[in-house]
Simulated assay, not measured.
Amino acid sequence: MGLTIDVSQADPGPVRVAIAGDVDLATVPELSAALTAAVSGRPQAIVVDLGGVTFLDSSGIAALITGYQLAEEHGVGFAVTNPRERIRWVLDLAGVWPYLSGEEIEAGT
């Protein structure tokens, strides 16, 4: 399955990047370009909706982390939302869900 990326913004409001399909080595360049373009517009925040993502590999996780770091460097809020159970499990397993989702990380956990 390919990748579909829909970028939209309600004014005022965050930029919403809705992703559907497989996020893997073959499709990561599209995701990276969309996240970079979203950050370059200097919105208040970017919300990445993973509700349509059916597969996420390590290169996809790396692209999300890079998008998060780029947004942080430019003072733009960044949050990943709405992952399917399997995708959330992968992000938890990689240890990045608390950072990408914007959830508070409790001391000692």
Rank of each mutant, 00 (worst) to 15 (best):
Glu73Gln: 15
Val17Leu: 08
Phe78Trp: 07
Leu31Cys: 07
Leu70Asn: 13
Val17Phe: 05
Leu70Lys: 12
Ala63Pro: 05
Ala37Phe: 00
Gln9Tyr: 01
Pro98Arg: 08
Ser101Pro: 05
Ile5Asn: 05
Asn82Lys: 10
Val47Gln: 05
Val90Gln: 09
Glu73Gly: 07
Gly51His: 08
Gly2Pro: 15
Ile46Lys: 00
Leu100Thr: 08
Gly102Gln: 07
Val7Asp: 03
Ala38Asp: 01
Asp49Glu: 07
Ser32Gly: 14
Gly52Tyr: 09
Pro98Val: 10
Val96Met: 08
Tyr99His: 10
Ala45His: 02
Thr27Asn: 05
Ile61His: 02
Gly21Trp: 04
Gly77Asn: 03
Thr66Asn: 09
Ala38Arg: 01
Val96Trp: 08
Ala94Leu: 09
Trp89Ser: 14
Pro43Val: 09
Arg88Asp: 10
Glu30Gln: 12
Thr27Cys: 06
Thr81Pro: 01
Thr66Gly: 04
Tyr99Pro: 00
Glu30Arg: 03
Gly102Ser: 08
Ala34Trp: 05
Gly41Asp: 14
Asp49Tyr: 01
Gln69Ala: 13
Ala62Asn: 12
Val90Phe: 11
Leu56Ile: 04
Ile105Trp: 00
Gly95Asn: 11
Asp24Phe: 01
Trp89Ile: 05
Gly52Thr: 06
Glu85Leu: 13
Gly2Ser: 15
Ile65Cys: 12
Gly2Trp: 01
Gln44Thr: 13
Val53His: 06
Ile65Ser: 03
Asp11Ser: 11
Thr66Leu: 07
Val80Pro: 02
Thr66Glu: 14
Arg42Trp: 03
Tyr68Trp: 14
Leu91Pro: 08
Pro43Asp: 10
Ala37Cys: 00
Val53Asp: 06
Asp92His: 13
Ser101Arg: 08
Phe78Ser: 03
Ile65Glu: 06
Arg16Ile: 15
Leu70Arg: 14
Asp22Glu: 15
Trp97Asp: 10
Ala18Cys: 09
Val23Tyr: 07
Ala107Lys: 11
Gly21Thr: 03
Ser8Asn: 12
Thr36Cys: 02
Leu91Trp: 13
Leu100Glu: 09
Arg42Thr: 13
Gly60Asp: 06
Ile5Gln: 02
Glu72Asn: 10
Val23Ala: 03
Ser59Phe: 03
Pro29Phe: 04
Ser8Phe: 02
Ala10Phe: 01
Glu73Tyr: 02
Pro43Asn: 09
Asp22Arg: 13
Ala34Leu: 08
Asp92Asn: 15
Pro12Ser: 06
Arg84Leu: 14
Gly41Gln: 14
Ala45Tyr: 03
Arg84Val: 09
Thr81Ala: 12
Met1Ser: 09
Ala18Arg: 13
Thr54Ser: 14
Arg86Glu: 15
Val15Cys: 13
Ala33His: 11
Gln9Ser: 09
Ala62Thr: 11
Leu70Thr: 13
